[in-house]
């Protein structure tokens, strides 16, 4: 089928959809585009600290997550256990991909670095620090403006792809971004998440007082331990800031591992798969 015919058939399908929706519009449409559910209204009215103090009063501080960014506060506070185990799924998926490439690594970096022309390289050298700065600002401002750990990690994961395409895989390795280091930083991020989550429990065991797991503010009735909502006058939203930071590390270096592995030359992989060989089995 030629391209014009494909576009024509796509538009014809779209026309069928339009005819269907004409028929449905005559009968009226269901609950889309209406107001929000009461759970969403609850999140909206308790997450920002300014509103929460109006709604709940200052003595019920723990029922708010102290973050003006409602989505991030849901992800890390109200539904923190959900996000914790989804991070575990992410961890296992990357471990699965690394396991497929077990024992395969380029034995000797003998070929000279290839890549695009010097003009593109110069522009890229200028661009990569901008990318990293933007990603870091997304992560560290994630509790105030749209953004957070996931978004910043995905934004930073574009940088190794650009470096691999424009320079080469060897350039990235020579700058110290190896699979082992990326695995280390990613594990450090995951351990950091677990520590931030478990510190209230450890504190509770030591001191013998009540504490809540996965909550960033103290709860009414047990004003024992919480992460600070304000640090030096600046709003840091308790544990959300730390969780954003560690999730940023984990996500960005997780995807860096994947792209370091998928850019290995296919001949190297095949020879290592057939021969095995000690020079391939360095990890």
């Amino acid at each position: 089928m030629s391209g014009v015919r494909k576009v024509a058939s796509a538009v014809a399908l779209l026309a069928i959809v339009a005819a269907l929706s004409l028929g449905a519009a005559a009968g009226g449409m269901g609950p889309f585009f209406d107001g929000i559910r009461s759970l969403g209204a609850f999140y909206l009215s308790t997450a920002p600290p300014q509103i929460a103090e109006l709604v709940l009063g200052p003595s019920y501080r723990g029922l708010s997550s102290y973050s003006p960014e409602v989505v991030t506060s849901i992800v890390w506070d109200y539904r923190g256990l959900d996000t914790y185990f989804e991070t575990a799924v992410f961890f296992l998926a990357i471990i699965g991909a690394v396991a497929i490439y077990r024992g395969i690594e380029e034995p000797v970096l003998r070929r000279p670095a290839s890549g695009l022309s010097p003009i593109v390289r110069a522009v890229t050298k200028f661009l990569i620090p901008i990318n990293i700065a933007v990603a870091a600002s997304i992560a560290l401002h994630g509790h105030l403006t749209p953004g957070g750990g996931f978004q910043a990690g995905a934004a930073l994961a574009v940088a190794p792809i650009i470096v691999i395409v424009v320079f080469s895989r060897r350039y990235l390795l020579e700058r110290g971004v190896t699979k082992l280091k990326a695995l280390f930083f990613r594990s450090a991020g995951l351990i950091g998440i677990a520590l931030v989550v478990l510190i209230p429990v450890i504190w509770s065991v030591i001191s013998g007082e009540w504490a809540w797991v996965m909550q960033n503010q103290w709860k009414p009735g047990a004003e024992a331990f919480s992460y600070p909502a304000y640090l030096g006058g600046a709003l840091i939203s308790g544990s959300i800031w730390f969780l954003n930071l560690f999730e940023f590390l984990a996500v960005s270096f997780g995807f860096t591992i994947l792209f370091l592995l998928i850019s290995i030359d296919e001949d190297t992989v095949r020879s290592c798969m057939i021969r095995g060989g000690e020079e391939c089995d360095r990890y």
């Binding site: 989804e86 992410f90 998926a93 957070g148 996931f150 978004q151 995905a154 996500v251």
Partner: peptide
């Protein structure tokens, strides 16, 4: 938000 990141890891 979580679904997109998890979906990306699984798709990779």
């Amino acid at each position: 938000l979580t679904a997109i990141v998890i979906g990306m890891a699984v798709n990779l």
